[in-house]
């Protein structure tokens, strides 16, 4: 069972990596032609047609890709807190049982 779960996990991981890599590559490809000097002035004039709050527009509309990475910082912070301070103790009992059974099977094989 654990092999099946691990293979499904690695497949999902592969698809996620492909999606992120394609978006990153698409952002970089032809980037030199996209840069226009003075685009900030243009956006400052144009942006308030969309919504009145300019700060939210810059954060979520103009720099939406930055905000995606910025919101993933919190996930990373939680992961690091659990990793350093918890030492793997706060897990669900199912996950722990799964890990324990895997370890036991490996020990039996050896």
């Amino acid at each position: 069972m654990s092999d099946k779960i691990a293979s499904v996990r690695s497949l999902i991981m592969l698809f996620a990596a492909i999606i992120f890599a394609s978006t990153l590559f698409d952002a970089i490809y032809g980037f030199k032609n996209l840069i226009q000097p003075g685009i900030s002035l243009v956006y400052n004039a144009i942006g308030t047609q969309l919504a009145p709050n300019m700060v939210t527009l810059v954060v979520f509309d103009w720099r939406g890709f930055d905000t995606l990475g910025e919101s993933l910082i919190l996930v990373t912070a939680v992961l690091v807190v659990l990793l350093i301070f918890g030492k793997g103790k706060i897990l669900d009992k199912n996950i722990n049982a799964d890990i324990d059974s895997v370890n036991d099977n490996e020990g039996d094989d050896e």
Binding site: A51, P52, N53, V55, T56, F60
Partner: peptide, 9 residues
Amino acid sequence: GGHITPGGG
């Protein structure tokens, strides 16, 4: 009200 008023997500 994040796109109209101060504040946000």
